[in-house]
């Protein structure tokens, strides 16, 4: 009976987007478990289908974003995440999760550093979808809107790397208006396998159209792009389901 794919949310001290991320996953069909870092085991990871590192400030991010989470995760689990990926599991890192995945070396080499003006920035941004074939981005249009909320969201890499990632198709999302000065305007990346996926913007915060800043947003009658982001991954992991397209009218959800 329980054939819904399981998503596992890894919660560090200071992870704070787990509630809305769990809500988004649950709404789109996943079975969701949130496990505090101290209670995590390699076994638990290997039996889920999608591992999610949600946003927040792991251990406060006082040294730099994601550093302590990376070190403690390496210490506790070694390369369990690599094994999980190699056995076909998907790993999604949003915001702080993206920062941690980059630090872990699971995504192309680079770093997410403080914005050039030194400020935290909470605003809606337009993003270009570079990988409309990816299970997360499949149901989304060419340009998609999500909110960002970060102080260290500026992606930088060794000279030439960012452009090379674009050429190799590792860049999944770029800012239309490069709000934080990221190299090649990179907002999201995937690894070579496509199964590790990191992004600064928050798809879980755009689950229904009511989330949008503009009540007259023309994208979809009920849902937000975040719904389709998670739903298409659900369909990827559970091929028996009928695919949903954003043009279909769907019943209103309760938030």
């Amino acid at each position: 009976m329980e054939k819904r794919p399981e998503a596992l949310l890894l919660k560090f001290p200071g992870t704070n987007c787990d509630v809305e991320t769990a809500r988004a996953l649950d709404t789109t069909g996943f079975r969701v478990r949130t496990i505090p870092f101290k209670g995590i085991s390699e076994e638990a990871i290997l039996q889920c289908r999608l591992l999610v590192l949600p946003g927040g400030f792991s251990y406060g991010d006082y040294i730099m974003a994601g550093r302590l989470a990376q070190l403690k995760l390496e210490q506790a689990l070694g390369d369990a995440l690599n094994r999980f990926r190699d056995q076909g599991g998907y790993i999604l890192g949003i915001c702080n999760g993206f920062q941690i995945l980059v630090k872990l070396g699971l995504l192309p080499s680079g770093s997410l550093i403080a914005h050039a003006d030194g400020r935290f920035r909470c605003q809606w941004v337009k993003l270009r979808n570079h990988r409309p074939d990816h299970p997360f981005l499949r149901a989304l249009p060419e340009v998609v809107e999500f909110p960002i909320a970060c102080a260290e969201g500026r992606f930088v890499a060794a000279p030439g790397d960012a452009e090379a990632y674009l050429d190799k198709g590792l860049v999944t999302l770029t800012y239309e208006d490069n709000v934080n000065g990221s190299s090649a305007a990179i907002a999201g990346l995937q690894d070579e396998s496509g199964r590790v996926f990191g992004m600064m913007p928050h798809p879980e915060r755009f689950l229904t159209r009511a989330h949008h800043v503009d009540p007259d947003w023309a994208g979809d009658p009920d849902r937000g792009w975040g719904y389709y982001f998670f739903r298409s991954m659900y369909e990827e992991l559970n091929p028996a389901t009928e695919p949903e397209k954003s043009t279909e009218s769907s019943q209103a959800m309760t938030l």
Partner: peptide
């Protein structure tokens, strides 16, 4: 080098 430094930036 491993804790305090971000070698990329």
């Amino acid at each position: 080098r491993t804790v305090l430094l971000d070698p990329i930036s």
